[in-house]
Structure formats: C-alpha cells, structure tokens
Amino acid sequence: MKKLKRSLFLSVFCLAILPYSLLAQQNEKCLSCHGEVFYQYENEWTGQMDKRPMNPFYHVDSTKMHLSVHKSFACIDCHSPEYETFPHSGELRMEEKYACIDCHGGDDDYAKYNFEGIEAEFQESVHYKANDEKFNCWMCHDPHGYQLALRENGPIKDVVSLSNDMCLSCHANKFQYGLLSDDDPKAIEDIHAWLPNQRNHFNKVRCIDCHTKVQDDILVSHKILPKAEALRSCVDCHSANSVLMESLYAHRVEESRAQSGFFNATILNEGYMIGANRNKTLNVVSIVLFGLMIFGLMIHFILRLILLKKK
C-alpha cells in the first residue's frame, strides 16, 4: 500500500513538472550558445571544434530569464522554429518580431495593464515619433528578462533602479544608442548638471517621473516627452501635491488608501522629499503651540502697557 502511494505521488509529481522539464530541455539547446559568453560548434569544413564569442546583443542571461515574467515560454514560441537548425539561416534575421500588444492586446487577463492604452501612449512618445516603427517595445523592455517592478512590493529604490536601467541601457551605451542615432549619447550627468543633489535624485527617482506625462489609466506612463517638456520645477515634486504621488508612489498610494486610509508620511517612508513629507499631527501641534505663545506674549505686553502706565 505504501509502495502504491509512493508510486502515485511520484507519477503526479512527474506529470506536474513535465511541462517545465520539457520547456527547460527545449530552451537548453538555445541557451547552450545564447546563454554563454562563448559558444562552440563543430566546424564541418575543418572537422575541428570552433569557439566563438557570443554577440552581446544576442546573449540571453538565463538566470534573469528564469526570473522574468516570460519564464514559461519556449524560445520558439516567439522565434521561428527554423532557429533549431545550426548554422541559422541568414534570412531569419529578417523575421518580424512580436510587439507586446500582439500577445497581450484584447486579452481580459491583462486588462488591468491596459496594453492598448500603453500602445497609444507609446505612439505619442518622442521615441516613436522620431524613429517610427524602428523603435519597438524591446528597445527598452528586455523580453528575456522583464520583471514587474512597481506592482511588486519590493523597495522603491529597486523599482527606481530597474526602471532607470532601461533608459540607461541606451542613453549610457553608445552601441545600443547607435542603433538609432549617428551621434554618441550625451553624458547623463552633464545634461542634468542643473539638477541639485544629482546622485540622490538618480537613485531615488525614475527618469520617467520627469520625462513622461502621467496618465490616470496607465500605471507606468509610456508617453516619453521631448526634453523641452520634461519637468524642471522642483515644487512639482517637493510639495504636498507631489507628482510622485501620481507616478512613482501611485500604486502604493492606491493600496494604502484601500487598506488603511492615506498618510503622506507613511507612504513616503522610503523616500524623504522636502515639502512633501509633512506630518499633519506635528503641523497642528506646532501651529497650536505657536498661537498660544503669541497669545501669551501679547497679553503680557498689553498688561505691561496698561498696568505700568497707571503707576
């Protein structure tokens, strides 16, 4: 009986992990080259094993891939099955790639992400307007390693870092930037020289918090603005009505409101901003104390005037 139970358990376990092991096997073949810095193959002409460096643009970080939102996909779900033969046919580089909307558009399971809205915003962005269809989703989002940042409950600094790395993968990398421009990217520090406490801002605020227009129905705005329209006014963030409440902290604010009401300071525990982190209780206490003090001093002063004049 015990043996039967064990066999039954093993069978169920094997059936449960079967799709994943098949997937792993399928992807293993691709990753044996694309997941490595160097790849090897048998050269049919010379009969020798050749070792070549993998083009960094075609390299896939297998660890990131297994942590990404697309981890349950086989490579050939998105790429042509013809890639299974090596050497790959030269014509395959002409293959049209899927965009996010091709899989996620019109799907109720993904309605909360509003991919249609994202697509519309993206087409309004300075990137798309300047480059048309040459600029696609994958210029910023790595399909092989994409992780949800803002919707997860990780620290804000990790959200900021993940988000800003997307921008810097082009704007601080002349090889990637060169795919769309003949110029070198300008040094981020130089073009933001006007920004006080630059390092602090870069570590605590996402590029898109100043460089996009916030839209209510999309969590992460995709309408990247021309540089002349980016936020430059300090008080847009450093005030009680901080725009960061509608962008960087938007998701947390909504959750907090739903759970336990809304407190500025609680939400912004992770990031202090002058002007935005006001403790309402302390504000009231300070105003009352100050009022009492002025009242007391005035009474004292008036009594001094009246009583001393009499004498």
């Binding site: 300090c234 008080v235 450093h238 005030s239 009505n241 002058i274 002007g275 006001r278």
Partner: peptide, 19 residues
C-alpha cells in the same frame, strides 16, 4: 518656505530657498 512649499504660493522660490 520649504516645509510648506507650494507651486502656487512660494514664500521663497524653492531652488533659492534650498540654496
């Protein structure tokens, strides 16, 4: 001015106040 900074009613402009 910084504590109560407001885009509409700055006592001292924010950048000047910080500096």
């Amino acid at each position: 001015s910084m504590q109560y900074s407001s885009p509409d009613l700055p006592i001292v402009p924010f950048e000047l106040a910080v500096a």
